[in-house]
Computed example of a mutant assay.
Amino acid sequence: MKVGLVIYGDLNTLSGGYLYDRKLVEYLRNQGDEVEVISLPWRNYLRHGTDNISLALKNRLRRLRADVLLQDELNHPSLFLLNRQLRKVVAFPLVSIVHHLRCMEEHPRILRWFYRQIERVYLNSVDGFICNSQTTLQTVREVVKSQKAALVATPGGDGLEVSPNEKIVAYSQKPQVRLIFVGNWIPRKGLHILIEALQGLLDLDWRLYVVGRTNLLPSYEQKIRRMIESGGLSQRVEITGAVSDEELVKRWQTADVLVVPSQYEGFGIVYLEAMRFGVIPIGGQSGAAHEIIQSGINGFLVPPNSSADLRDTLRKILSDPDLMNRIKKAARVRYEQFPTWQSSMASVRKFLVTQFLQ
């Protein structure tokens, strides 16, 4: 099978969506399929729209030798009009990989309406969807109002290489609880909400490790650093930046609680990854995190943008070692109920073959 994949920038970009695309490319190539990655340059949203009138891009895609063309839905502003032209001149189907819709993120109402219109046109221009969660598929169905071929293939939580003798480490009554935030520094991930919540927990013994790219939005980075300093947290928050997979494994193995109170997640790979190591995940209620976390059983969900609710949840966990130990063990059990990357990507390949190539 010959496959094309349209993305922005580098396939090795650090994010859950790019990890999903990367795992799919890796699996397809291991099955003997040919995969050509078509990388479009990163620009702002409006400038991406000019790709729709790019003769160079149109000709490149038209000349593509493929049985199917996959498109990361993130690229919708570059393709929402171009796809209609492509369908007239190519024989291969267009299939969108949808991690989450931009119109579901927190934006001013008029912007969300605008994004929804563009995404509606784009989603109607493809032949099928690969979604990372039932929540994502539901939002797609609500926007498109049609029954195109679709598959839900959830990400795996086993992307990091760990020694075969890995095991959950029960909470050991140690006085200091290790909190961890893993994610890029963008407002949607809710790091500012976490920092604000921690300012009200200085009476408890904890330490926060912040893992992820810091420099995507310089103004947001400055805001976070100011909050840490002004809140008296400088001695209790360690900023590591982006780390290697080996270092991330070490961080997971010593962490107790993951806190990523996102405004919205199309799935939330980081929560599942935490559960693999028996780390309690705290996520946001909006989006698909509820498909992973059963709040109060194997993790906790908090309302988005509520530092007060997050503070109360953290105080509850930090003040009750027995509760922490119980939730940590339940988190590991929950992880084992999800498919591996291998099995999920196998289902994607089967979907492509049976739906579009037979």
Score class of each variant (00 low, 15 high):
K328G: 11
I282N: 04
I269K: 03
K328C: 02
Q294D: 13
D320V: 10
I239K: 07
K250C: 01
V279D: 03
G268Y: 12
V259Q: 14
N325V: 03
A242K: 14
R315N: 12
D245S: 10
L301C: 03
D322L: 08
P261M: 09
R326E: 14
S286A: 15
V243G: 14
Q235M: 09
S234T: 15
P304E: 03
H290I: 02
V260P: 03
G299S: 00
V249P: 01
E246P: 03
E246G: 10
Y264R: 10
I317S: 02
G284M: 00
L314C: 09
R276P: 15
I297E: 09
Q285T: 08
R276E: 12
G287I: 02
R315P: 12
T240D: 01
R251N: 02
A274K: 08
G232M: 11
R326A: 09
F267H: 06
P303E: 01
T240L: 15
F300W: 14
E291C: 13
L318N: 02
A308V: 15
N298Q: 04
K328W: 04
A242V: 07
E247G: 00
S307K: 11
F267T: 04
V257E: 08
V249N: 00
V279R: 03
G266H: 13
G283R: 00
R332E: 09
L314T: 06
H290V: 00
F300D: 07
G232R: 09
G284I: 06
D245M: 04
Q263I: 06
I282F: 03
A331W: 12
L314N: 12
S307F: 13
S319A: 09
G299K: 04
A274H: 07
V279F: 11
F277K: 08
A331E: 07
G283D: 05
M324Q: 15
I293E: 03
N305Q: 13
V257F: 09
G296P: 07
G241T: 11
L301Y: 12
A308W: 10
P304I: 01
F300V: 08
I239C: 15
D256L: 06
N305V: 00
Q263N: 10
K316A: 15
A289W: 04
P321T: 05
F267K: 01
P304V: 04
I292E: 10
L314V: 11
R315E: 15
S244M: 02
S306P: 04
G278S: 10
E291A: 15
Y264A: 00
V270P: 05
